[in-house]
């Protein structure tokens, strides 16, 4: 592709700024599987008091496809670099990073690289390594074969996810305000970059990075999380000295989607009374 990438980091990452202009800055970092629309349900809890910055990770959502670089984005540090670029360009300081899933490890790497910029880290359903590591007794929840199977599944959905295949949207008459737009956002997933991102996500190992985090951190755990099992989340908590672990009642991997009120409350409580 020879298209020139957008000239600002904010445009490349499709940055959206919402909320109270003078408020404390909260940057929401989405994970594997979608884009910034993932935060939709939790936004109202933050926008009244905070300035909220949303963006799409490279290759996801409405990020600039020309800015996707298979080499740069073959490691989580590439994504962390994108995040830092956005923060530097918008001149953000005293930032609260709220990050989900693999986005949590992107946030951790950004916070280690530029600790002066961030005042709080909130990690939702994080995992520093998805693949088990029998040598150290670590349980990430997946075997190497599982990851291969995931990549396989991504392939099988290649056609379902390509923009060329028109989705059959069943009516959601009771939620007219969502529907179209959000479904469209979910459909933006590019099969190729989804595959790349899956590989980066599930084959990376950020356990060594945890010990270098100096930013105050809240770790949020869900029940029955298919992606970040309790052992993996606990490892993140134990790896980051002084971090606080909060267990939600919410089930599954996406508490900000399935239980936005509970998730927001846990995060806001922590921000008001850190430690």
């Amino acid at each position: 592709m020879n298209h020139l990438a957008a000239d600002t980091a904010a445009r490349r990452a499709n940055v959206t700024v919402l909320g109270r202009p003078g408020g404390r800055t909260v940057v929401l970092v989405h994970g594997f599987g979608s884009g910034q629309e993932m935060w939709h349900r939790i936004l109202p809890a933050f926008t009244g008091e905070h300035r909220v910055v949303l963006f799409d990770q490279a290759g996801a959502g409405h990020s600039d496809p020309a800015a996707y670089d298979r080499v740069r984005h073959s490691s989580l540090d590439g994504y962390a670099g994108d995040l830092l670029d956005v923060c530097a360009e918008l001149d953000l300081h005293d930032v609260v990073l709220v990050a989900h899933s693999v986005g949590a490890m992107v946030a951790v790497r950004a916070a280690v690289a530029a600790p002066q910029r961030f005042s709080q880290l909130v990690l939702l359903a994080p995992s520093a390594r998805y693949v088990d590591d029998p040598a150290t007794g670590y349980e990430g929840g997946f075997s190497r074969e599982d990851v291969e199977e995931l990549l396989d599944s991504l392939d099988h959905n290649y056609f379902a996810w390509s923009a060329a295949v028109a989705p059959m949207i069943m009516g959601t008459p009771d939620r007219p305000e969502l529907g179209e737009e959000l479904t469209h956002a979910f459909r933006q997933t590019n099969p190729e970059t989804a595959r790349d991102f899956a590989r980066v996500t599930f084959l990376s190992d950020s356990r060594d990075v945890l010990a270098r985090v100096t930013t105050p951190t809240l770790v949020v755990q869900c029940r029955a999380d298919a992606l970040a099992p309790a052992t993996a989340v606990r490892r993140v908590h134990e790896g980051i000295a002084g971090s606080v672990l909060v267990q939600l009642a919410a089930i599954g991997h996406c508490p900000h989607v399935s239980a936005p009120e509970e998730t927001a409350a846990a995060v806001l409580t922590h921000l008001r009374n850190p430690g």
Partner: peptide
């Protein structure tokens, strides 16, 4: 679901269902 599809369902389908209200024609085993 086998593990690969389980990850996809967790990361893609459930959030989309909860947010947008629908998913369609996802290929799973």
């Amino acid at each position: 679901l086998p593990v690969g599809d389980r990850i996809l369902f967790s990361t893609h389908c459930l959030p989309q269902l909860l947010t947008a209200g629908a998913v369609s024609e996802v290929v799973v085993d």
